[in-house]
């Protein structure tokens, strides 16, 4: 999942981790920049939808422009 927008990654990353934990999703953040965050998540489609819904709104000090999802070819560790 790739999240594009404008954010202080510092405030957003813990938020993402908390939301994923609430959904019982195991995620790994691979890229964390001020305008791009990439994470690997595995789980049922409805739960990944829920992750996308939550993140697209996010905390008040971030603006998420778009979220793209692509299947991961090889499991990253």
């Amino acid at each position: 999942m790739t999240i594009l927008g404008e954010f202080e990654a510092a405030s957003f990353l813990p938020w993402i981790e908390r939301h994923a934990a609430k959904l019982g999703l195991v995620q790994a953040i691979c890229v964390a920049g001020p305008d791009r965050i990439e994470l690997d998540i595995a789980g049922p489609a409805e739960l990944i939808d829920m992750m996308e819904m939550g993140c697209s709104l996010g905390p008040i000090d971030v603006w998420v422009e778009a979220i793209h999802r692509a299947p991961i070819e090889c499991e990253s560790g």
């Binding site: 934990a21 609430k22 959904l23 019982g24 999703l25 049922p44 409805e46 739960l47």
Partner: peptide
């Protein structure tokens, strides 16, 4: 159970 998504078995964390 989440009725809007009946196929989903909600995880224990919800």
């Amino acid at each position: 159970r989440i009725p809007a998504h009946p196929a989903l078995a909600p995880p224990d964390t919800i």
